[in-house]
Amino acid sequence: MTVQEKSWKEIPPAGICWKPSTEYLTGDWKTYKPIMDSEKCTRCTLCVIFCPDGAIHWNPGKEDIEFDYDFCKGCGICANECPTKAIEMKLE
């Protein structure tokens, strides 16, 4: 099945959103960027849990935290909540 892109004016009233929002990057919203200090980080994953944007991932293979700057809006929740203060918000 091929999906044809129609504008919202052309779709029936009960329309369907069909494109995953992971194709819509929100990373350019940010003014400040979280930078993690790998030495201070204890891999507690609290930042992964609290991030409203799901922009921080736990990579079990590497046993490490990964920031996805394509989606990070720079809110700073991760830096605020990090128990060891391993994350610093830096002007982009």
């Binding site: 929002s21 992971t22 819509y24 990057l25 929100t26 609290l46 944007d53 799901g54 809006k73 809110c75």
Partner: peptide
């Protein structure tokens, strides 16, 4: 554990347009 939760895929995916710092999205 925290890692179990961190590892589980999001059903509410990235790319949503909530304001930065929106706790409702969390």
């Amino acid at each position: 554990t925290a890692k179990d939760i961190a590892e589980k895929a999001d059903l509410f995916m990235s790319g949503h347009r909530a304001c930065a710092g929106c706790a409702a999205a969390t």
